[in-house]
Design a protein around this nucleic acid. Structure first.
Lengths: 305, 305
DNA sequence: ACTCATCAATACCTTTAAAGTATGATCACC
DNA sequence: GGTGATCATACTTTAAAGGTATTGATGAGT
C-alpha cells in the first residue's frame, strides 16, 4: 500500500464516482479504477460498492476513509515537524554552564533565544570546564559556556563577552572609602582567589597580572567559585577580583569598586564552545542569536574574536 | 513521499549504514541511497550525516524516525481494522425492533451475536413495521424484526421462529380454572386484540382463525401492542391471544393457558428483514448467528422458510 | 421494448520511476 | 601511502503507473 492509494481512495470516496475523482486527480479513469482494485485486493476487503451511477462506500470503506484521512493528517504533521526541526525551530538544546554563569549575559542570551525559537527546549546542565568538554564530545550537550578556554582541535571557541575586573570587598574594608582602587595597591591586601580546578584558570590570570605589576600577592584563600569568593570577601577574608557580571551577586555587606592602573588585557572572557563539526541547525540558530546579542553584552561588541 | 521512503528510512536509521540496510531490504545499495536523498530533498531537511563508517541521524532525522515509526504503526492499525470490518468483525449493526420484540428470542439472538462479534456495536431502534421498511430503505437500520410481513421485492424476509398461540387472562377469569382452552370456546368471551397498525397484522390473523372456526369474535378492545393487551386482559377486559414468547411478560394477576383445537397454521411467525441487495459482512455474520441459533428458538428448527 | 447515456472494467500501449550493475570518490586505519 | 569500507554517481534494466480505445452493464427516457 502506498500513500498514493490513500489519496486516490479519498478522492473516489468523496466524489462517489471514479471518473470524476480521476478528473480531480488529473489522471484518467482506468488507472484510477486499477489502483482502487489493487488497494481492495491488498487489503482483502471490498471498500466500494459499484452502482450504475458511480460507487458508494461499504461499511469497511467508510471506516477506511476515516483511517486514510487520519493517516494523511499524521503524515502532514510529521513532515511539518521535521521541517521545523531541520530549520532549528523545533528540538532541544543542551547547554553546559558553570556555577556563576547564571549571572547576567547567559540568562539574557537564553531568553533571547527562547523568544526567537519557542519550540526549542533548553536544558541547562551545570558542569565545570573539563566536564563540558567531555560532555560536548559525548554529545550530551550541544554548547557550553566558560572562561579562559585553551584552544582544542575538535572544539570551537567563540567569544561571547569580555568583562572588566572589579574588586569585591566588605563595606568594612580599609579600601571601602575609596572611589576606585589602583591595582598595584593590592600588594598590601590579602586576596581571595577562585576558581580552583582545570588550568588555565582565573587564578592563573590574576597571579600573572600581579607579577606583571611587580608584586607577589598575599593569598588569603583559594575557593572553588565566585559566589564563595565574594562571600569570603564579605566576611573580611580579604578582597576578591571578580568579572564585572558578578556584581549581579548582591550579597549583604559586599561592595564592588572599579580598578585603575590595569593593562588593557586585564579582562576576562566569556566564551561558548561547541563541537567544530556540529552542523546542527539549532546550534546555528543559537550562534546566530549570540551574534545578534553581542552589542548588548559587556564589551563584546568592541572585540574581535 | 511514499510509505516506501519511510520503510527505507527506518531501516537505514536502524542499521546506521546504507549498505547493510539495503541488504536487509533485499535491494542493492545505490537505489536506497537515492531514495533517501529523494526523501531529504522532498522534505528539504538533512536527515542523515554521512560519515566514513556509515551514517548517523541528525536531530531532525531522529525526530523523523519517531514520526516514521508512528506512521507505520498507524497504517498497520488502519489496515487491520479495515480487514476486521471487511470480515464483519468490527463495525455497527442497527436493528429495528417492535415494542414487545424485546422478549425471548431477540435478546437471545443479540446476546449470541455479541458474544461472537464483540467489536460490533449493536444499536437498537424501536419502530413499527412500516417504519422498519422505511428505515431499511434509507439504511438507517440494517436488519429489522417483525411478524406477518408481506413480501416485498427489495426486502428479504427470513423466518426466525414460529410461535404457538396462548391465551392471556386474569386469574379471576371464568376460564382460569381450566388447564387448557379449546379455541372455539372463545366465541363466548370478549377478546382484547392487538396490534393496530399496518396490515396484515396479528388482529387479521386472529379474525381469520375465528372465522375458520365458524364464529365472529366479540371484540372487547383493540390496542397498539402486546403489553397493553395483556394488561387489559389482567384488568378483566377479556382474554387476549398472544404469541408464546409473551409469557416472559409476567404482569401481576395474569395467567397464560394453552389452546387446543387449533389448526396447524395457527402459529405466528417472527421474521427478520433486510435489504435484498445488502452484501454487508456484518449482516452476513448476523444471519449466520440466526442460523446457528435456530434450534434454540421456538419451533424455528422444525420449519422451512 | 428499445435506444441512449453513464460509468466502471478490460485490453493494450506509453511513459515514468524504481531497482540493478559498474564504477568513482572519500576517509579512516594499518 | 596502500587498503578496505562506505556513500555517491552514471548508466541500464525492469516494473509499475498512466494513457487511449473499447467493452460491458445498467438505468432513464422515448
Amino acid at each position: 500500500m502506498d500513500l498514493r492509494h490513500l489519496r486516490y481512495f479519498i478522492a473516489v470516496a468523496e466524489e462517489q464516482n471514479i471518473g470524476r475523482a480521476a478528473t480531480r486527480l488529473h489522471i484518467s479513469q482506468p488507472p484510477l479504477t486499477r489502483q482502487i482494485q489493487q488497494l481492495e485486493e491488498e487489503l482483502g476487503v471490498r471498500l466500494l460498492k459499484r452502482t450504475p451511477r458511480g460507487v458508494e462506500l461499504t461499511q469497511a470503506g467508510a471506516l477506511f476513509l476515516d483511517e486514510a484521512r487520519n493517516i494523511r493528517a499524521v503524515v502532514e504533521q510529521a513532515t511539518e515537524r521535521t521541517q521545523r526541526a531541520g530549520q532549528g525551530k523545533l528540538g532541544r538544546l543542551d547547554v553546559g554552564i558553570f556555577g556563576t554563569a547564571i549571572l547576567d549575559a547567559i540568562p539574557k542570551l537564553l531568553l533571547a533565544f527562547r523568544r526567537s525559537y519557542p519550540e526549542v527546549k533548553i536544558v541547562l546542565h551545570t558542569m565545570n570546564k573539563g566536564e563540558q568538554i567531555e560532555a560536548l564530545r559525548q554529545r550530551r550537550i550541544t554548547v557550553g559556556f566558560n572562561r579562559m578556554l585553551a584552544p582544542l582541535p575538535d572544539i570551537t571557541t567563540r567569544l561571547v563577552a569580555n568583562e572588566r575586573l572589579l574588586l569585591a570587598m566588605s563595606h568594612t574594608s580599609p579600601l571601602a572609602a575609596q572611589e576606585s582602587v589602583a591595582f598595584p595597591a593590592l600588594r598590601d591586601h590579602p586576596l581571595v582567589l577562585f576558581p580552583t580546578g582545570a588550568r588555565p584558570n582565573f587564578i592563573d590570570k590574576v597571579m600573572t597580572l600581579c607579577h606583571e605589576a611587580g608584586f607577589e600577592p598575599i593569598v588569603s584563600q583559594e575557593v572553588s567559585d565566585a559566589i564563595t569568593g565574594v562571600a569570603l570577601a564579605a566576611g573580611g577574608f580579604g578582597v576578591c577580583l571578580v568579572p564585572e557580571s558578578t556584581t549581579s551577586l548582591a550579597l549583604p555587606g559586599v561592595i564592588y569598586k572599579p580598578l585603575t592602573d590595569l593593562p588593557h588585557h586585564a579582562q576576562v572572557d566569556l566564551s561558548c564552545i561547541y563541537r567544530s563539526d556540529d552542523q546542527s541547525p539549532i546550534l546555528e540558530a543559537f550562534l546566530g542569536t549570540i551574534e545578534q546579542m553581542r552589542s548588548t553584552l559587556p564589551s563584546g561588541a568592541a572585540l574581535t574574536e
